[in-house]
Write a protein that binds this DNA or RNA. Structure first.
Length: 606
RNA sequence: GGUCCGGUAGCUCAGCUGGAUAGAGCAUCAGCCUUCUAAGCUGAGGGUCAUUGGUUCGAAUCCAAUCCGGAUCACCA
């Protein structure tokens, strides 16, 4: 058993692929007397139609060795055989690919020594990361796009934690500004004292109604003024409602009591509504920042930047930074009246975050419409020598679009978060009832199950695609519960749990399995399972939950194939039964861990 | 116009640090429940990887040009 380099093979970060790399490097160096590295060749998993598990692609080595694929392959095989590694069962050379089959004993050993409950998680790396996500405006309810942001942020935080980071989740609440004043003005004019309570409306939706109302009336006023002969621009500036909103913003900044009171009251309604939604989707934060408290931050930094010569003042006393040497434009950082702009407070907040948390990685989950802004922010922070500015990372995700194009609140084409969640939960209920497998569940158990499944479908749907890419959501074709979906994986998990229950099997039941050989369906699961830690590492490195989603789906598929081909409880021998129970348990744990990293729960029965 | 992102099966998406015959899911069609949960499994059909040229043993993947779609370039946030 020469491959046991340490007791907990996987905690050493030593994967089978690395082991093969090491063996090949050694074989190359011995054969050619040069120093090769793992980067000089490539190892791929072998496709189903060929024999073996992993293959070494020989082409990249031909030039350096001066040999043909056949000759190089022969020499390599000879050298590898010389090493006498009991891990390798067979070598086969096909058209420039050196196919290696791993001994079944290795996979069984892997199963025996892997602690299923914690498998895949990496030990602490002593680094801290902050993930800022969600960042709602307090003038309207959340929509489908916000859900993508929330699910991504939560998942990335979990993935980084599994990669050994200490993670802080933060959220900047955009609770002030002209858009907030708009809904306040509209409420003052048109609500006649109505409240969420008096109208039986969820607070964020209630306030959102007045934001919409503002825009409707404002549009009408602009139209009227234009008919009276003003240009569009003039009309937009002079519309009474807009003037009122602007005045209210000034009053807010001056701290006028009646404005502050209304502001607090209406934001309070929104928070009550958000709380319900956040609780339902499982979003939580270690630290919430409010724009009303941070918007003045950054002014001092501008002063410091001026002294350092990073910024410069124009004649009208506005402050700028010239980013043309970096291929960008000139950017304003302080208005001529001395007030700060969006980016000013972001600079301030970036520094504050660093001072408070000393994070090594500073991740912002923000839509790709702000790519330019984030590029500028990072550049400015670097030029100001804000510590770790180089580790500001914009996790830029694409918009969720409808088949008709972007969602537009003004055109009523927004998919509301609460609505879609309720719809998913209802769909879960419908499926569950028509299958009738949990008729003995209590009402509480049922509603928990519906939420688990409905939200699972929803989250998986939004997380299974590459965050960077925009995605299209078709409300006509509701989100599926079959195939590449959350419920498919939840179902696979529940079926395994059913077996383990019947066998009264738990983690402590695990003993060393003495089996020597594996069926293809058994081995396929183990080969895939062994890659889990590497997959978590990749997801962390790429900040990409879809890697986990795809991985979990493939594992579930492999398990389901195994499930139909072989019986666990009626296995052909007692040893096989134990092997399959351990195999099933490991699969279930990996599926559960994967889903956990996506913020999705798994049911024991469904 | 400048910058950036994208274009892969009817639809939604993988694959993109170059490697074997380009993969899933949905939809369509054909099979599988007296056997551990059929939200499952097996199989079939379906492709000019936007176009053209280049790099090389090899290109969906890298480079260039073109076409199409999107984002962004505010003393808005």
């Amino acid at each position: 058993m020469g491959w046991h380099k340490c007791t907990y093979y996987y905690f050493c970060g030593m994967y089978i692929v690395q082991h093969i790399q090491d063996a090949v490097v050694k074989a190359l160096n011995e054969t050619f007397g040069q120093s090769f590295t793992a980067a000089d060749f490539q190892i791929n998993q072998i496709k189903q139609e060929f024999k073996g598990d992993y293959s070494v692609v020989l082409f990249p080595l031909l030039k350096r060795t001066g040999l043909s694929p056949q000759a190089l392959g022969d020499k390599l095989i000879a050298a590898l055989q010389q090493q006498g590694d009991s891990l390798f069962k067979s070598f086969e050379l096909i058209k420039g690919f050196l196919n290696i089959e791993i001994n079944d004993a290795f996979w069984i050993d892997f199963l025996n020594r892997t602690p299923a409950a914690t498998f895949g998680q990496h030990p602490s790396n002593g680094r801290r990361a902050m993930v800022e996500y969600s960042s709602p405006n307090t003038n309207k309810p959340l929509h489908l796009g916000h859900l993508r942001n929330n699910f991504l942020g939560w998942s990335i935080a979990a993935i980084l934690r599994a990669n050994g980071y200490e993670v802080f989740k933060s959220c900047i609440i955009n609770d002030r500004g002209i858009h907030i004043c708009k809904s306040m003005i509209a409420w003052k004019h048109f609500a006649q004292g109505a409240t969420p309570h008096s109208t039986q409306t969820k607070g964020d939706h209630f306030v959102g109604m007045y934001y919409v109302k503002f825009n409707d009336v404002y549009k009408a006023q602009v139209k009227e003024l234009m008919q009276a002969g003003l240009t569009e621009k003039e009309a937009e500036q002079q519309a009474p409602l807009m003037k009122e909103a602007q005045q209210m913003l000034i009053d807010w900044e001056a701290g006028k009591p009646e404005v502050m009171e209304l502001w607090k009251r209406m934001n309070g309604w929104v928070y009550e509504g958000f709380d319900v939604t956040y609780k339902k989707i499982g979003s939580d934060f270690d630290r919430q920042y409010h724009e009303s408290e941070t918007y003045l931050l950054g002014k001092e930094i501008v002063q410091m930047g001026l002294e350092k010569g990073v910024f410069y003042r124009k004649e009208d006393s506005s402050v700028w930074i010239d980013l043309t040497p970096d291929g960008l434009d000139e950017k304003l950082v302080l208005r001529k009246d001395g007030t700060s702009v969006y980016i000013t407070q972001d600079i301030g907040l970036a520094l504050q975050k660093y001072e408070q948390y000393k994070v090594d990685e500073n991740i912002y989950v923000i839509g790709d419409e702000q790519n330019y802004h984030m590029k500028v922010l990072k550049l400015i922070c670097e030029k100001l020598d804000i510590p770790n500015a180089k580790h500001i990372h914009h996790l830029s995700y694409g918009m969720v679009e409808l088949p008709t194009g972007r969602m537009k609140s003004r055109e009523g084409t927004v998919v509301d978060a609460d609505d879609i969640i309720d719809e998913m939960i209802q769909t879960a209920k419908m499926h569950t009832e028509s299958l009738g497998k949990v008729s003995d569940f209590s009402a509480d158990e049922l509603s928990t199950l519906y939420e688990t499944l409905g939200l699972g479908a929803m989250k998986f749907y939004l997380l299974r695609v590459d965050p960077k890419k925009k995605m299209i959501f078709n409300p006509q074709e509701s989100i599926d519960f079959h195939g590449f979906t959350g419920p498919f994986i939840q179902y696979s998990y529940a079926r395994i749990q059913s077996i383990l229950r019947k066998a009264s099997w738990d983690e402590h039941s695990k003993t060393n399995v003495n089996e020597q050989t594996l069926f293809a369906a058994e081995k396929d699961i183990l080969v895939h399972a062994e890659q889990f830690p590497a997959v978590i590492a990749q997801a962390g490195k790429e900040l990409n939950p879809s890697v986990i989603a795809t991985y979990a789906f493939n594992l579930a598929k492999l398990y389901n194939t195994f499930y139909t081909e072989h019986s666990v409880l009626q296995a052909e021998s007692e040893v096989k039964k134990w092997l399959r129970l351990a195999l099933s348990h490991l699969s279930a744990r990996i599926l559960a861990t994967s889903m956990e990293l996506l913020g999705i729960r798994v049911p024991e029965r469904m």
